[in-house]
């Protein structure tokens, strides 16, 4: 009885895989890569399930349904349901090291990544298989080489800079929360963050901010990160506060040092 049920499942999965492979081969030229959830193999799903049970289920529940009651934010260890969060969310949280969570905090910080790329893919595929949700972007969606940097700048200043600052360095939010620096994030992670709205960040779905607009933003962020600095050494790109500190701690100190030199007695 049991065996047959497994057999049926495997048969169905195998059939799906076969169809998928055939489809992929047929479309090899037109589509470079599909979303991970679509191309998930049964082995990947199984590995994802195993990893989930080992690493995530203690907080998110054995079936990713979440654990009610005290959440991490108020001292407990209950995590939210992951049903329908999609592969984008899982990939973002795990690939930046935010998950698994180290301990209760105002928000999950970026830290050392604990899963390999393959493991992360597997986890994402497993969660995505539970219920449909925002999928990780395809390579095509992430390709911002054709995007308009200037337009990206305008979109960035309208939608992003109020929290992440004009140079993507991040900033404070209320009650101890903060918008992190986005300069170390990969384009995929930035895309996924926009798509899923992790923590306090609002969601920018592909309807509210189209794929082209997201690509323009990615292009602008890439420019922030890689373009040669058009001026001198920056002071953290934090705005006038850094300038003011420098004026006092270096400028005035240097001037006073010269004044002391002028006034000092010579032996």
């Amino acid at each position: 009885m049991r065996r047959s049920r497994w057999a049926a499942l495997i048969a169905v999965v195998a059939a799906l895989v076969a169809v998928g492979v055939a489809y992929a081969v047929l479309n090899a030229q037109s589509k470079a890569a599909a979303a991970p959830a679509e191309s998930a193999t049964s082995a990947q799903l199984e590995e994802g399930r195993k990893l989930f049970l080992e690493g995530c289920s203690s907080c998110h529940g054995l079936n990713a349904e979440g654990i009610d009651g005290a959440t991490v934010n108020n001292g407990g260890n209950g995590g939210p349901s992951l049903i329908g969060v999609g592969s984008a969310s899982v990939h973002f949280q795990v690939s930046t090291g935010r998950m698994p969570l180290a301990g209760p905090a105002a928000q999950a910080p970026v830290k050392t990544v604990e899963y390999t790329a393959e493991e992360t893919e597997a986890l994402a595929a497993y969660i995505a298989s539970l219920a449909p949700g925002p999928a990780s972007p395809s390579e095509e969606e992430l390709d911002f080489s054709e995007a308009d940097v200037a337009e990206g700048g305008e979109l960035f200043r309208t939608n992003c800079s109020q929290c992440h600052n004009f140079a993507g360095r991040g900033g404070a939010l209320s009650d101890g929360a903060y918008a992190p620096s986005i300069l170390d994030a990969t384009p995929q992670q930035i895309y996924e963050a926009m798509l899923t709205g992790p923590q306090q960040m609002p969601v920018f779905s592909n309807e509210s901010l189209t794929v082209e607009e997201k690509q323009a933003i990615l292009a602008y962020v890439d420019d922030l990160r890689t373009a040669p600095n058009p001026a001198g050494q920056d002071l953290g790109s934090l705005g006038p506060v850094g300038d003011g500190l420098f004026a006092w701690l270096v400028g005035i100190v240097l001037f006073v040092a010269v004044a002391v030199w002028i006034g000092a007695r010579v032996r």
């Binding site: 309208t158 939608n159 709205g197 920018f204 779905s205 509210s208």
Partner: peptide, 15 residues
Amino acid sequence: RPVRPADVPIGGVVS
């Protein structure tokens, strides 16, 4: 772009 209700996701913000 004109906005349809479906374009604004729950948890989303649109300027």
